[in-house]
Amino acid sequence: MSESNGDGILVSVQGARREFSRGNERIRVLDGVDLEVRSGEFLSLMGPSGSGKSTLLNLIGGLDRPNSGTVEVAGDRIDKLPDRKLAGWRARHVGFVFQFYNLLPVLNAARNVELPLLLTPLSKAQRKQQVETALSIVGLTDRARHYPKTLSGGEQQRVGIARAIATDPTLLLCDEPTGDLDRKAGDEILDLLDALCRDHGKTVIMVTHDPHASERADRVLHLLDGLLATEPAA
């Protein structure tokens, strides 16, 4: 399967609409969004709370489906994939980084990083090697046996990033990755994402409401009233 089309486009969203029900009310969060992301690009999605940033990220990551429109990632129409295949697709192509890290508290850092590797045909020794590589990229080799509760917020997010890159996915989807961190720890995480994009060729799509964080991206798009714009609302 190709990683991107001939134009180097890895993610293509066309006319995506997404509505949610709240009681009898229908709320349209995305109203025909068009988006293309090049392979190796660092894109930042900004917008106020409830503007649909995370919803768009979920559509691109195959965690949700649009009511209408198409979502194509790495050549796959993921809006058409059945749930069973979609889970496997996520495991192969996407790494998720969450605001609250979402580490499993009963597993140590290495075991957390190993989780997505359990979905691959790698042997135990190969998995161990991959875990060591991922932890070394995020600079946490010496914390491999530590449990999440013994790690700082910044370290937990590094473990989260190590888990996201353990299977060497093309696409990293980051939902407010610095939202729960102080400025210093947040900058370290942004440095890491930047390096993954520049040095390891990952395509990064980051949702944030922090202008400081979005400065690190190649391109910044704003979501407003369910549509994307290159400039924030006045």
Binding site: L63, R90, A91, N102, L104, L115, L119
Partner: peptide, 12 residues
Amino acid sequence: EIATLRALGFGA
């Protein structure tokens, strides 16, 4: 945590 596992690719 269960949703995280599902997001990582673990099947239903």
